[in-house]
Design a binder for these strands. Sequence first.
DNA 1: AGTATTCTTGACATTAAGTGTCTAAAATAA
DNA 2: TTATTTTAGACACTTAATGTCAAGAATACT
Lengths: 99, 99
Amino acid sequence: MYLSELLKYHREKKALLMRELAYKVDVDTAIISKIEKGDRKPTKEQLHKYAVALDIDYTHLHTLWLSEKVYQEIKEEETALEVLKVVAKRIKEEKKNNE
Amino acid sequence: MYLSELLKYHREKKALLMRELAYKVDVDTAIISKIEKGDRKPTKEQLHKYAVALDIDYTHLHTLWLSEKVYQEIKEEETALEVLKVVAKRIKEEKKNNE
DNA sequence: AGTATTCTTGACATTAAGTGTCTAAAATAA
DNA sequence: TTATTTTAGACACTTAATGTCAAGAATACT
């Protein structure tokens, strides 16, 4: 499930109007609409307010959010999977060194 | 080996002055210096010209380049490795669907 | 040493990308 | 139909990325 869909789902579950949620997230209603349509990504701060307003686990939202960002960056690349491997390797090595 | 180091290594191997390489890559010498210092990332276009000028495999350069970009984006995150997994999963699924 | 050349640094200008605001039209609900 | 909500697009504003320039630092040469 895409982040946009998830956010919409939770807003509707709480029976909030965009206008109401917009107030809580402190943005224009138009932004909420675009976020749920996938036209825009929420900022990190907005995402956090979303989590509070809709009572969703922030870490989960954030992981999804970052994943989509990374995905957008590499999706067109032939070498996408290799890139991911390279990055994972580097992160694992860093982790080891920080123990 | 970092991209910056690799590029420097190959320039020196070819015994090119920064000024000479700068001409071939079509940027100011200052940019070359910063790229080799890791202060700046080359653009995609510059990277390609680099590959031609220094006779390096572009795909390899590009993979390294993208890896560092992705790495920068997630390195501070607790969930970095999970993010990579999520992205990899999505890419694999897309691949499957495009067969 | 002194001079010439190369490399580096930082300040600033320019451009591109992301974000926010507003309004009018489209969709939906009453 | 009327009222309300949602959507779409134009535009302004902000921030990040990139490019340009010039002066200082480092290196190589004689």
